[in-house]
């Protein structure tokens, strides 16, 4: 029995005039029905491009150079664009960051919802489509949905719009939902509401859910599994609780320390020194070595691969984990 989605050794490159730039290297993860996975990392770590690669919509000049994306056993990198269009938005949906921008300002939300349905089910009647749209609006707790169907996006608040976007993503009963920073543009109370809604829906609908974000708090509260990305590589992955409570990779440690709660007593927030390298300028060996507080000689020459951490359910790409030099503070 193959997994719902399996990403294997994904390499995404961007063809530039000066040569190819590698955006992600050897990214692998799997996701099962009803599972919620968090993809975490700084801006430019390759989270979003990984998300887009799953629906085969990397914007030019990016392309998948190597690796497989298996959706229920079918390799999405190998099927025709016609077949892909039938999967995209139908069986795999995506939710975007900014709810103010993702709805078309001149179409009523009813039109936008039914259009998605009709595009994937040409035989469906308009009436059936609007009934499904109503049902989905109820599911995302929009009050008096009959009236709302005829309104335009500017008549809704930000939180309401994000819920409508979720309803549109849900409308074809997809098997996987990819959310690219779905709550970044919303304030904290609405954020919690939206995240609760999404995780509740994932459980009732038995969907796989990939949450792409840089917000560790959101990941910790929603997901079961986590993959931490740095400079296009997964540096640590495992059960969310384990990784947050007991991080193995120095980068993950740094991220968690950087949370405001970590700055107890002292006035300054802890931060990881330096910046993430640009993709054209990734250092030899471990990509994190210039910023790593525990850097060793081997880190500057060899690249660590993801290995099982002893006695734990976590995998990390760090030599410290291998040699067991590194103990938890």
């Amino acid at each position: 029995m193959s997994s719902l989605l399996e990403v294997k050794d994904l390499v995404i490159k961007f063809g530039l005039r000066t040569g190819d730039v590698t955006a992600t290297t050897g990214v692998s993860f799997t996701i099962e029905k009803g599972e919620k996975l968090g993809l975490v990392g700084e801006s430019g770590a390759g989270k979003s491009v990984t998300g887009f690669s799953i629906i085969v919509l990397i914007s030019k000049p990016g392309y998948v150079a190597d690796g497989h994306i298996l959706f229920k056993g079918t390799d999405l990198t190998k099927i025709s664009s016609e077949e892909m269009r039938n999967i995209r938005g139908n069986r795999i949906s995506m939710i975007f960051q900014d709810p103010m921008m993702t709805l078309n300002p001149v179409l009523t939300i009813g039109t936008q919802m039914t259009e998605t349905l009709l595009a994937h089910n040409p035989k469906m009647s308009m009436k059936e489509a609007s009934e499904i749209a109503l049902e989905k609006l109820r599911k995302v707790h929009i009050p008096s949905p009959e009236k709302r169907l005829e309104q335009y996006p500017h008549e809704f608040s930000g939180g309401m719009r994000q819920r409508i976007i979720i309803a549109i993503a849900l409308i074809t009963d997809p098997e996987i939902i990819i959310a690219d920073e779905p709550t970044t543009a919303l304030d904290v109370t609405i954020q919690a509401e939206i995240m609760d809604l999404i995780s509740e829906l994932c459980e009732t609908e038995d969907m796989g859910f990939i949450l792409i974000t840089h917000d560790l708090a959101v990941v910790a509260s929603v997901t079961e599994n986590i993959a931490v990305m740095y400079a296009g590589r997964i540096v640590e992955k495992g059960r969310t609780r384990d990784v947050i409570d007991n991080p193995q990779h120095p980068y993950t440690k740094g991220l968690i320390k950087a949370l405001p709660e970590g700055a107890k007593g002292s006035n300054r927030l802890n931060q990881i020194k330096g910046m993430m390298p640009t993709l054209t300028n990734i250092p030899d060996g471990c990509a994190f070595n210039p910023r790593c507080p525990y850097v060793m000689d081997i880190c500057k020459t060899d690249e660590p691969s993801l290995i099982q951490v002893k006695g734990m359910d976590t995998q990390a790409a760090c030599f410290l984990c291998k040699e067991e030099v590194f103990t938890n503070e």
Binding site: I55, L57, R88, N90, S93, M94, D98, T102, N104, H120
Partner: peptide
């Protein structure tokens, strides 16, 4: 604008 990207993601 993002709604165009969203439309592409929807499979249009």
């Amino acid at each position: 604008k993002e709604y165009v990207e969203a439309a592409r993601v929807t499979g249009f």
